[in-house]
């Protein structure tokens, strides 16, 4: 019981501290902006830990964070294997193929107005559909190994990437296009010197959305069949064995991989589109 009360006290104290920091004089400084969410996150973990012990929550419902951390470090070889299978082989290869194919298609679609008017509505429609549902079909076609996972990822990232790239390629002003015409510039110079650079913010938006979709696709596809490794496989089998600490450890891996993947793309975006108003310092 004391642990529960302690958890409550810590929560109240954290909130008082964050309120003071957030309304304090230096609230807009960089350290405070990082400190406040860090305190919040840390408090959640501490309160979680205390409540699990204080209320004697069984492992099969919720493991304590310390328990998850311990499992994480004990199981690093397994987690690493799963990470390679799901992220490197499944998600990453599918991401590269899917985004690459969508990019090439977008260039083609953009060149022919007929295709643009035909494919864009279809693409917008498909982008809103529950595409994970194709996972059982693709698993049946491409087998249990990573190829089928990559195929699911390709299907998932293709349309969001296509729609974003096509929208980006249209993002030039009539004045910019007229300027190219006054130089008597043909299709390729206009594409490489004007329309592709101008499309970059949109292309990166598509790439960023696709990072999350890729990981989701690769994990969920494993629920429909996989070799005896992979993050989705481990999650579903560990859930079956009620080994929730292992499930949480995989979730930690997924969260780290997901945010690192997104972070890398966002960093690249920053260097490529440094000129865009949203990125200027």
């Amino acid at each position: 019981m004391t642990l529960v009360i302690l958890a409550f006290v810590i929560w109240v104290a954290m909130w008082a501290l964050n309120t003071r920091l957030a309304n304090g004089p230096r609230a807009n400084s960089r350290p405070i902006q990082l400190l406040v969410p860090a305190i919040f996150g840390l408090t959640i973990l501490v309160v979680w830990e205390l409540l699990v012990h204080g209320l004697n929550v069984p492992l099969v419902i919720l493991p304590a964070p310390s328990h998850v951390v311990a499992t994480f470090f004990n199981e690093i070889p397994t987690l690493w294997l799963d990470f390679q299978q799901t992220f490197i082989k499944g998600a990453l290869s599918g991401y590269v193929i899917g985004c690459g194919a969508a990019f090439a298609t977008a260039i083609l679609v953009d060149r022919y107005d007929f295709l643009k008017r035909g494919l864009l509505p279809v693409g917008n429609f498909v982008a809103a559909l529950p595409i994970v549902g194709t996972a059982p079909i693709l698993v049946m076609w491409f087998g249990f190994d990573w190829q089928s996972k990559a195929a699911v990822v390709v299907v998932m990232v293709f349309f969001p990437m296509l729609v974003n790239t096509v929208a980006g390629l249209q993002e030039t002003t009539s004045m910019q296009r007229d300027l190219m015409r006054t130089y008597g510039a043909g299709y390729w110079p206009s594409l490489t010197k004007l329309r592709l650079p101008a499309a970059m913010p949109f292309i990166f938006n598509g790439l960023k959305i696709s990072t999350t979709l890729a990981l989701i696709g690769a994990i969920v596809a494993e629920f429909f069949g996989s070799p005896t490794m992979g993050m989705g496989f481990r999650i579903s089998t560990s859930v079956g064995q009620l080994a929730l600490d292992m499930v949480w450890a995989e979730i930690v891996v997924a969260a780290l991989a997901g945010s690192a993947f997104y972070g890398v793309v966002a960093m690249t975006e920053k260097t490529v589109t440094f000129w865009h108003p949203s990125q200027r310092k």
């Binding site: 002003t173 004045m175 910019q176 007229d178 300027l179 006054t182 004007l194 650079p197 101008a198 970059m200 589109t273 440094f274 000129w275 865009h276």
Partner: peptide
Amino acid sequence: AYGYVFQAAGLYPW
């Protein structure tokens, strides 16, 4: 045969 200057500078920001 000519250079054209528009109402706005229209320089490429990148």
